[in-house]
Design a protein around this nucleic acid. Structure first.
Lengths: 301, 301
DNA sequence: CTCGATACTTGACTAAGTCAACTATTTAGC
DNA sequence: GCTAAATAGTTGACTTAGTCAAGTATCGAG
């Protein structure tokens, strides 16, 4: 795959062409593309001023002024007056303007619909969500991360991502993934929902992290399957997940929170250490195709 | 989420604006956007004719002719002559033209790079792949489906998608997902790679289906976890996966291929039936939050 | 009340893009 | 091999789109 810069440039070329095709002049008749965009904005916002429109659409104010004048002449828009500032002229569509806007929209919808006919039906929603993703990624700040309890599909996600990431980052083979699958299975089948819990971290509607607390004995809880996706790292999510577990274990009256990890998992170990865990024991073992050193950590609550 | 048509329209508005910003006139100086696009194409294709360029870029031939003439005057392009057809004039950049093209590209790269600075680093590759996906979905036919053996991450994917899809389509809760996780775990841990197998169906680089064959006894193989993603349905993939299993079971000398399914899974049952399986027994049970009728099917090999 | 912004308009212009008619050549039909 | 239709590209005459800077009206701060 090319670098992001090249990928974006490629996409720009592609979409410039595509928009050119989609925005054939004749589609907007009797309006120009700029006019059509203005009409659209007027139909979808609440009495904007000329300046706001110019900024939103990125067009010259002089040009816009002329377009609006032409619209006014044709009886499509009427300019009110702002109560507080007589320079501002809040614009709104007249009934005729609304009709023109609706007609234009209908045509656009039809045109896009025709284009979508070419796309296999199954791919259309994929297309919609890929487009939404592009927009989200360009436009918005990284969306906030929220935690939620697990729901159907999440156990599989946890297994899947453990499998992929530990293979990619440490080379661990499917046996590790199978271990995780077993833990996930047991979690669901033996779940005591009063004393055990799973948190899924979500960012922009997709999971980016997980952690589990399960009961090891009446007084000892065990933290398991802490995972943070690469794209969500470096913002304290791991720590947040661990803190959630600690608070939960305390609230439920456990006396100790324990966990098992590997010496090579530096990021996770740093989190445990910072959260107050102590290493109690280490143990060499050969698993998932490697020689590993397992570590037992615990935290008195 | 809106309909695909609305989503595409929204994206068009969004990207029109974005491209407008990105394609500020001054960026291409001393060329116009159209000139820059022509220059780019000239630099990246092998002696195209004017007609080919016009078609590729979707611009008027007359306009293009003028642009090319201006380029020729500035010594950026030279038109050769096609050996077979004297009307065609294969175009190529002179060294000066190549230099101009490279300069333009460098500027574009810099500009896009600056824009990408605003996007969190972790999101950049996501952006690139979302863009590639949009392009792929619009442009290309649905890519072909291929089968491959499993690799790390696949077991989790199988669990995940079973969890999500059976919940969405039939309401089955996490206990079903846990059952699948157990099957996946056992598959890896007890795998006899000579007599057992998993196939993952891939479309455009992402998994869209699965099926497993495991050994039940020396002479009996069992087909499990047949799954086809909604986007890949309706093109015989389910049948293809089942056929793969049958061929494998035959090749390995099994005498019978059996499977367990549910009466409500109409699509799967139809596939089994068409492949020659017979139902041998049914059994009511309550699982995953529903009253279900399990069915045992088998095929003499 | 004055000065410097702000919101919008206007005049004068250039660049961009379109359309149809034109030349030169090729291809297909007879 | 000649002619008509088709194709590749060019040109002239035009419209539209977009820019820039100067202009008017109004506002807010001192």
């Amino acid at each position: 795959m090319a670098t992001p810069v090249e990928a974006v440039r490629r996409f720009n070329r592609f979409y410039t062409r595509r928009i050119g095709v989609l925005q054939d002049r004749s589609l907007y008749r009797p309006y120009s593309l700029a006019e059509a965009r203005v009409l659209y904005e007027l139909g979808h916002r609440d009495a904007p001023t000329a300046g706001a429109l110019a900024q939103e659409l990125g067009i010259d104010t002089g040009y816009l002024s002329r377009i609006l004048k032409a619209f006014a002449r044709r009886g499509l828009v009427s300019a009110g007056r702002a109560p507080s500032d007589a320079r501002r002229r809040p614009l709104s569509l007249t009934p005729a303007g609304k009709k023109a806007c609706a007609a234009l929209e209908a045509r656009s919808r039809k045109e896009v619909g025709a284009m979508l006919e070419e796309v296999p039906a199954s791919a259309r929603t994929q297309l919609a969500s890929a487009m939404a993703e592009v927009e989200r990624l360009i436009e918005k700040e990284a969306p906030g991360v929220s935690l939620r309890p697990h729901r159907p599909g999440d156990m599989g996600w946890v297994v899947h991502r453990h499998g992929v990431l530990y293979f990619r980052e440490y080379g661990w083979d499917e046996r590790f993934e199978a271990l995780v699958a077993g833990i996930a299975k047991d979690f669901i089948e033996k779940l005591d929902s009063e004393r055990e819990r799973c948190w899924i971290a979500e960012m922009g509607g997709r999971p980016v992290g997980s952690v589990f607390v399960v009961q090891q004995s009446k007084t000892v809880a065990k933290l398991r399957l802490l995972l943070v996706e690469p794209e969500a790292r470096g913002q304290g999510l791991g720590r947040r997940l661990v803190d959630e577990c600690i608070a939960f274990a305390r609230a439920k009256g456990y006396r100790r929170l324990v966990l098992w990890t590997q010496s090579c998992l530096a990021a996770a170990r740093a989190i445990y250490k910072a959260a107050g865990f102590r290493r109690t024991r280490t143990e060499r073992h050969g698993s998932f195709g490697y020689h590993l050193t397992g570590e037992y950590w615990e935290l008195e609550l």
